[in-house]
């Protein structure tokens, strides 16, 4: 009789046919609580703080902050930079993944490693390298000055730094997927008489479209939000070379917190939209996005 009373305490509750492969209830609750508290504390609270601080001084202040000329100029510059940097890295990503996934050649793994290189470089260094090349005291500085070409503290420098930090995003989504897909579809199209370009646009591109979109979304989020690299090459000229993240910094350093958080909230919104698209793609097209879990 005592056996039946004690037994339920010793045997973990059965879970979907695996009674011995889960933890006891108190341990489960403790682990879940730890995970939830940690995520709320480190992720959700900062996000909430952005919106609360942005609206603290009222909606009028908020709207004024995001519609004043310098803020609008920053938004415009950010969009322009992303509009140049993202397509550039898309073309590169397509070329690189075509070469790496469709052919066997020497040095392929080295090339694969080099593509990921910018991810392991500090953003500050990503800006610094272009200052060293094109800055007033840089290698090409005297030549550029002689020809009145401005790269550093101007749009070209900002675009270059942004391209550098977002360099691997598209390629690293496409390479593993195209390697998985092999060359059979393309060979079939070619043997039926399609040209190389036609094969690419009608066969390859449709095969990789969701992974490409996935890479573009991540690339774009980073391009619009990059701070360190752009900060080094921008020169922080208000209304001219200030991107949105730099505008946030300037406002914040002027103790104009309401305005800083107002502009920051736009970037936070961009982050949320990025997450929604990303998760949507992962749920809907998981099989067509290789390596969807890796970053």
């Amino acid at each position: 009789m005592t056996d039946t009373a004690v037994a339920p305490l010793l045997i973990p509750e059965p879970v979907a046919g695996y009674p011995v492969t889960t933890e006891r209830l108190p341990v489960r609750i403790l682990l879940i609580a730890t995970a939830v508290v940690f995520l709320v504390l480190f992720l959700l609270l900062p996000l909430a703080a952005v919106f609360v601080e942005a609206l603290r001084s009222g909606l009028g202040t908020y709207l004024a902050a995001i519609t004043e000329p310098d803020a609008l100029a920053a938004v415009k510059l950010t969009l322009l930079v992303a509009a140049i940097a993202v397509p550039a890295n898309v073309v590169f990503g397509l070329a690189a993944s075509w070469a790496i996934a469709k052919f066997e050649f020497k040095g392929k793994s080295v090339l694969n490693t080099l593509i990921d290189l910018p991810f392991s470089v500090s953003p500050v260094i990503s800006g610094l390298i272009y200052v060293v090349l094109f800055g007033a005291l840089g290698y090409f500085g005297p030549y550029l000055q002689g020809h009145h070409i401005q790269i550093i503290f101007a749009l070209p420098g900002i675009v270059l730094a942004t391209i550098f930090v977002t360099f691997p995003f598209v390629a690293r989504e496409l390479v593993p997927l195209m390697q998985e897909q092999g060359t059979q579809d393309e060979e079939a199209a070619l043997s039926l008489g399609a040209s190389g370009w036609k094969t690419f646009f009608k066969v390859t591109l449709p095969n990789i479209r969701w992974a490409l979109l996935y890479g573009v979304v991540l690339c774009n989020a980073r391009a619009m939000g990059e701070f360190g690299a752009v900060s080094v090459v921008s020169g922080h000229i208000r209304g001219k070379t200030n991107t949105m993240p730099l505008h946030v910094e300037i406002l914040y350093n002027e103790y104009n917190f309401a305005a800083a958080f107002a502009v920051a909230s736009l970037l936070a919104l961009l982050a949320l939209i990025t997450l929604v698209i990303k998760i949507g793609l992962e749920w809907r097209y998981a099989d067509q996005i290789a390596a969807s879990r890796r970053h």
Binding site: P46, P123, L218, P245, E249, L270, A271, L272, K278
Partner: peptide
């Protein structure tokens, strides 16, 4: 919460910093 784990990848670092 699973979806939000990627927030630090998506949120610009300057925004994270001031928040």
């Amino acid at each position: 919460l699973d979806a939000f784990v990627d927030l630090p990848f998506a949120l610009p670092t300057a925004v994270a910093g001031i928040a």
